[in-house]
Amino acid sequence: MAVDLRPAPAGVRAAPSGRGRIRARLSQLDLTLSPYLYISPFYLLFVVFGLFPLGYTFWVSLNHWEIIGGHQYIGLRNYRALLADDQFWNAVGNTFGMFVIATVPQLLLALMLAGALNRRMRAPTLFRMGVLLPLVTSVAAVAIVFTQLYGRDYGMANWVLHFFGVHKIDWQANKWSSWLAVATMVDWRWTGYNALIFLAGMQAIPQSLYEAAAIDGASRTRQFWRITVPLLRPTIVFVSIVSTIGGLQLFTEPLLFNNGYMNGGSLRQSQTVAMYMFENAFQRFQYGYGSAVAWMLFLLILVFSLLNFLIIRRLAGGRT
């Protein structure tokens, strides 16, 4: 930056001319208005494309609303119909089934991986990149590849299983098998990422605790369960809530696992709530009913994040 060493024109400093006053005013304006100007893009965008749609979803859900022919206010009738809708509850069951069999092993595996990564080793960055690799692949690509791996006739999963005497499984056909298949896709993609977050949490645990425990003769396994896990509690809560929010919105993986059929298979074996919402809104053009599904999904996420929080606080805290 060039520095101007010439003395400033005397007039400007001594008695503010008209121009100087304007300058002072502008500078005052700059100080007071700039912050609002700088943060406004987010709020503008959020109001138009975030807040308005959210509130509007609720309004739409109180109407009988189809793509053509306007809408009619019907109060809570969509919600009442939804509570009696077997297909909706089926989707809720599927979503939770996949969520549970995906999340529980995933968090345990991630914890184990993080424990392994939290050692002094050669090429730590390489190992960290290795476990993170699945995250940087595109989600549709993952779903397509895994769907082939789970093919009934030529899939590699069945080929490996036949060595153990397991007969060909039609993975898409049953509830439990399609849940399991989708859960492995989710786990494959997210375990490494969660391991890195756990690792960051582990590195923040003070060394002195382990030294004291070692002096008292606690084994490493014992140290892990008695020191690492309880002190990792905030991280565990964070990870499981993020997993809950993501897991209950599951959409792409089960959709592509069913070759793009929004119903999740002929018996709706693997239709999730998000798919059911999409099906109602964008294939049956029942915007009102679809919006009611969206709000129920929101409530489910809220309730389960809270439950999750309480349970994990209990579990991880109970050991200390």
Partner: peptide, 9 residues
């Protein structure tokens, strides 16, 4: 806030 909530409106 889950993003999918708002996609219909």
């Amino acid at each position: 806030v889950p993003v999918q909530m708002g996609i219909i409106p």
